[in-house]
Each structure stands twice: as C-alpha cells, then as structure tokens.
Design a protein around this nucleic acid. Structure first.
Lengths: 145, 145
DNA sequence: AACACTTTCATGCACATGCATTGAATGCAA
DNA sequence: TTGCATTCAATGCATGTGCATGAAAGTGTT
C-alpha cells in the first residue's frame, strides 16, 4: 500500500498508481449506485432527498450525544454543520432552507454572535427522521454490494 | 473488516449495520474531497471536467485493449459506454456532446444499426488525455488519504 | 405489408450544486 | 470613536444531472 506519493511519483509507481485508480473507479461506481438508490427511495417513501436526510441524521446524532440543553434540543451551528458534512456552504444553506420550509427544522439566531445561525430539529423533523432511518439502513444494506 | 454482508442482513445485524453506515459516510467524504479536487484541477490545467476525463479514459482503454481496427481507432458504442461508466444515459449524451464541440471526440453513425452512435477519439482528444492523465493520477495520489 | 413493441440516443424541463458576491456582524488596531 | 479586515450565512448566476418524453430505427407477429 503506497502510503503517500511524493509529488513527483507520476512515473515511478505505475502499478501502485493503477491500484488507486481501480479503487477510485470502484468508489465512483458504488457511490453512484448507492446514492441514487437512497435518493429515490427516501424521496418516494418519505419525501426527502439524500442531503436532507444526512442533515437530519447529523442533527439527531448531535442531540443524542450532548444531553446538556445547550440552547434548545439538538442545536447545531451552521458553520459547524458545514465542516461536518460533505456539502458546500451554499448547498447546505439551501438544503436547510428546504428543510425549514418543510417544517422539519427551525433556524434561530444566536444572541452571542448574531452572525451565526443555529439549526434545530422540530418534532416533525425528529419524526420523519425516525421513520426514514430504517429505510436508509435497509437500502444501504441492499445496495452496498 | 466485514468482507461481505449476506443479502438478508437487514434486521439481524444492528452493529454490522452501524459499520456500513460508517463506511458510507467515509465514502461520501472521500468522494466529495477527491472528485472536487479532480474537477478543479482538471478544469484549471486542461479545460475539461471530471466526467469528460473519465470518458476519454475509457475510450483510451478501449483503444489500447482492442488492437483490431474494428471501425475507426478506439470506437465505443454509446450504449456500451453508458453501462461502463457511472453516468446516466442523458448525462453521458451531453458530456459526449461537450467533448465533441471541444473537438476531442467524434460521433459517427453505425451503418449496421442506424440507431447506434459510435464515439471515437480525435487526435486532439488523445493529446488532451495524454496530458491530463498524469495530473489525474497525481491529484488522486494526493487526495486519496 | 401493417401493426405493435423495443431499443437507442437526444432534448425540454425542473432542480441541486458550486462559484463568486453581497450584506451583516464581529474583532482588532490606531 | 473610526477604519479595515475577517467571519458567517444567503443569493444571483451558470452549469451539470435526472426524469420523462420524443423521434428514429430495429424486431416480431399477424
């Protein structure tokens, strides 16, 4: 396993580089298959996209993790969420906006730093996630291999 | 390392399911990081996107693999390409259209089955791919881990 | 031949994403 | 205080993608 290629490792390691390329293609294929299946199933059965589900998932994790009632239940600072998820800042902003318009999360200002936005689950959001989670796990198990 | 889950591993394995979820999140993160880096670098240094490069890559592979001059050099049937790559049929159609307008590939009809379209590399396409391939491998090596 | 069905690729449309920018709030320094 | 750079989130814009459809060509049945 080539730990880390030197910046000029283009020529020397043709076999090792080929292995990474193979892994990369495998990853691309699996990503396409799994995320496509998740997207469709979550949309059909629960009316949310994959990005939306992933956000809800993080929020629930955060809620369960910190039992301290920091602000509301399961608050998550927008900027923290951006770095904890695979979405870009703008994509996250819009996804949260979608979730809010669906009534699944609530955006609130922080009094300490009035630039920051806190996102927290609503009861409806918690409910939808609880319903969608088994579906998510199931599809993952079916399509993973 | 869980080699391969049985096909009906939905309910029974709550711990194993959690492991798959972890792997899935890891895959999502790596996919985002690597594909984003590849996209940017390929675009900046060679003027093509990741999808376009992947298509060129398949075409070159096909050229090298079959030394028989089947039709032209490195022809690839559109429908075959669709199943060999992670792109959907419509995405592939447009990506090839982009490549053609850039002069990197050439679309030609097949006389046997006039529904089918054959894609083959132009000299310019071969050249761009040859230049971009080291970059691709290099970025892959840098961002893989 | 005539008809229905399938396959193959392109395209209109809606939408999610990334980039770059904007606007607001903060922090720091003079 | 004023001034300037920084941080944070939202948004205009361009673009790539998927879904559903359409058109053309092939296949099969009567």
């Amino acid at each position: 396993m080539p730990t880390r290629a030197t910046s000029k490792a283009t020529k020397a390691s043709s076999a090792a580089a080929g292995a990474v390329v193979d892994e990369w293609r495998t990853l691309l294929d699996r990503h396409a298959k799994v995320s496509c299946a998740l997207e469709k199933t979550l949309q059909n059965e629960h009316g949310i996209g994959l990005s939306e589900f992933e956000i809800l998932d993080r929020l629930v994790d955060a809620t369960d993790a910190s039992a301290d009632s920091s602000t509301d239940q399961g608050s998550y600072r927008m900027s923290d969420l951006t770095s904890d998820i695979y979405l870009s800042q703008s994509a996250l902003s819009r996804a949260v906006a979608r979730l809010e318009s669906d009534g699944l999360v609530h955006r609130s200002m922080c009094t300490d730093d009035r630039r920051a936005i806190f996102v927290c689950l609503t009861d409806a959001g918690r409910k939808v996630h609880a319903e969608a989670k088994p579906t998510h796990r199931e599809v993952l198990g079916e399509t993973w291999e």
